[in-house]
C-alpha cells in the first residue's frame, strides 16, 4: 500500500469520466462525467499534498471545487436554456457549429 495506489485510482476514475464524456449523449450525464474527472484530480491533489507535507495541494483542490461549483451553475443554466429552445438535452442535437 502506497500513495501510488491513490494516484492510479484517480487516473482510472479520470479515464472513466473521459470515456463517459465520449459515449454519453445526455448533456447532464456528460456534465456529471466532467465532475467525476474534476473529483479524480482533486484526489490527486490531496494525495500529493500529503506526499509533499504541505497543504497547498489541499488549497488547490479547494479552488477546484469552487470553480467546479461555478461551472456547474453556469453549465446547467446553459443546458436549461438549450433544452427550452430545442426540447432536447442531447449534446448531438446542438451541432450547428459545423462545416
Amino acid at each position: 500500500m502506497s500513495l501510488t495506489h491513490y494516484l492510479v485510482l484517480a487516473a482510472i476514475l479520470f479515464t472513466i469520466g473521459a470515456v463517459g464524456v465520449l459515449v454519453r449523449r445526455n448533456a447532464i450525464v456528460v456534465f456529471m462525467c466532467v465532475e467525476l474527472m474534476l473529483n479524480s484530480v482533486n484526489l490527486t491533489l490531496v494525495t500529493f499534498a500529503r506526499a509533499n507535507g504541505t497543504v497547498d495541494g489541499q488549497i488547490m483542490a479547494f479552488f477546484v471545487m469552487v470553480v467546479a461549483a461555478a461551472e456547474v451553475v453556469v453549465g446547467l443554466a446553459i443546458i436549461m436554456s438549450i433544452y427550452r429552445t430545442r426540447r432536447s438535452a442531447s449534446v448531438d442535437d446542438a451541432n450547428l457549429l459545423k462545416y
Binding site: 502506497s2 500513495l3 501510488t4 494516484l7 500529503r50 506526499a51 509533499n52 507535507g53
Partner: peptide
C-alpha cells in the same frame, strides 16, 4: 511515484 516518500 513508486519511490515517493510520504512526508505526511
Amino acid at each position: 511515484t513508486q519511490d515517493l516518500p510520504v512526508t505526511g
